[in-house]
Design a protein around this nucleic acid. Structure first.
Lengths: 156, 156
DNA sequence: TGCTATAATAGTCAAAGTAAGTCAACTAGA
DNA sequence: TCTAGTTGACTTACTTTGACTATTATAGCA
């Protein structure tokens, strides 16, 4: 029997056939497959992670939802993952600036966007010991880079 | 089902389309949406806070009302310093998001820029103990806000 | 006129309702 | 047997409601 997780994965991907994003109710989906709601989280975590090129947004409470967004891996095939890999979990300011410049050169961000990003990773934006700064800068920059690709995807 | 709160928020913002302020009767509004009057207070508290760029004035008793005022800004300089002051050296994620939304509402940033900024201050962008996160978020956000104003200045 | 009672409003807060997230223990298939 | 998959109890977050409180205008009365 095809694994439940596989079926759910397929189901979600089918729903995303046309359109870069969908919204689902976790409970509805779970009910549809007759499984525990947390099973949905499992599928999302294992098949729709950032590494897989997706971003998950959600909201709890009444009217809650889970939104699954496919990130565009635009121009050069795996630019996004290459960048994320380059950033890793620690990066110095100069390298960060270079990456942002790269995005600008490729016209993946506007000049204003690039400036905002630079401001976010500037050394004086991170009031911490130097080594910690690099770690933090990496996570802030990764978040922004992912967002840039998501923006690009949606704009298509 | 679109959330009641969301509908009410939309309704109010539509009413404010032209004009920086409106006045409503809490009970009327509640009746219009078929909900408890205090629901209106909830919407105001969560979507029309000062961080969102609104001021609420009201009066009880006969002829009572609730006035919703979109904060005007005499000059960008004032807004900038107001925002920086609000950010201070520590700010939680919700407030940061509200401030970014405020910038977007005022069209000081584009949707894509706003998204990038949100990504930079998201909790998962800051892998640190919670209290430290707020401090860091404040400095990152301040840096970006300053940059936004600088961009605007240059664009003129 | 000046005071008081009443009606008309809005504010606050806590409880209940709704929905997603986490985590650790259990299960089953390769 | 080992790992991916599955489940359920518990936690966190957001929304909605209702009971109770506070404030203000006004009508009626002394």
């Amino acid at each position: 029997m095809a694994q439940l997780s596989d079926s759910i994965e397929r189901f979600i991907k089918d729903m995303m056939e046309d359109g870069a994003q969908i919204e689902v109710r976790r409970n509805e989906l779970a009910q549809h497959f007759g499984c525990a709601p947390s099973q949905i989280n499992y599928v999302l975590a294992t098949r729709f992670s950032v590494d897989h090129g997706y971003i998950i947004e959600s909201r709890r409470g009444g009217g809650g939802y889970i939104r699954i967004v496919r990130m565009g891996v635009n121009s050069p095939e795996n630019l996004l993952s290459a960048l994320l890999q380059r950033i890793g979990n620690s990066i110095d300011e100069d390298s960060a600036v270079a990456i942002i410049q790269n995005l600008l050169d490729r016209r993946l961000v506007t000049l204003n966007e690039a400036r905002i990003m630079r401001a976010a990773v500037a050394k004086n934006a991170l009031a911490l010991p130097v080594s910690a700064k690099d770690v933090l800068r990496a996570s802030v920059l990764s978040g922004m880079v992912r967002q840039v690709f998501q923006n690009a995807e949606e704009g298509k």
